[in-house]
């Protein structure tokens, strides 16, 4: 074995390890969310500060945004909570219903994660209820990050897969099974 070859091998191993470690960031699981900021808070903005039609006015940049936006775990949780807190009821899977679509790039109140966070916490005058105190703040961020991911605005490797509702045909497991007869159970413990 010549030594340059060894070197190359070592370098390759180091590079691989570095790449793997970098990958760890996208999956970091912080179950408590980051500590609340000491500076200005996104939720401190009232709806009247925001002109319909978006525009440059909006909540200031929030340092927590990055933590949620690039993290597969938080975005995945956001997807779950989008359903659990019934955003579906008005926005469907992002395509819009009573509420406006969230997956396109047209925003009434702005499409930065801070602005989406504010829309959820504050509510919006034409029919969007305020979720202040109804959803813990970590989860609002997670939902906002998920909404960002709908339009392809987060790192691809962190975005969750499309929901089943957006597939053209139902997944095999979602097809309604033929009901088994409860009177004569067929599957028995083994």
């Amino acid at each position: 074995m010549s030594s340059p070859c060894r070197r190359l091998e070592r370098l390759a191993a180091a590079a691989l390890a570095a790449a793997l470690l970098a990958g760890c960031q996208r999956e970091t699981r912080d179950f408590h969310g980051p500590p609340p900021p000491s500076g200005p808070q996104a939720s401190g903005v009232s709806p009247s500060d925001l002109a319909a039609g978006g525009g440059p006015i909006g909540p200031p940049h929030d340092p927590r945004a990055a933590i949620y936006e690039d993290n597969a775990f938080h975005i995945g949780e956001g997807k779950r909570y989008y359903d659990w807190y019934n955003c579906y009821g008005c926005h469907a899977a992002g395509g819009g219903d009573i509420g406006p679509p969230l997956m396109d790039d047209q925003w009434i109140y702005g499409g930065s994660i801070e602005q989406i966070h504010a829309s959820i916490v504050e509510g919006r005058p034409n029919g969007m209820p305020s979720f202040r105190n109804k959803i813990p703040d970590d989860q609002v961020w997670e939902i906002a990050a998920y909404i960002r991911s709908m339009g392809g605005n987060v790192a691809k490797d962190a975005a969750p897969s499309r929901g089943d509702e957006l597939q053209s045909s139902l997944a095999k497991t979602q097809v309604k099974p033929t009901p088994a007869k409860p009177a004569a159970p067929t599957d028995q413990p083994r």
Binding site: K172, Q174, V175, P177, A180, P182, P185, D187, P189
Partner: peptide, 16 residues
Amino acid sequence: LAGKEDLIPGRTNWLT
């Protein structure tokens, strides 16, 4: 009470 029975998304299993 009984042996194991799996719970599977999208499917119904029965156990007596």
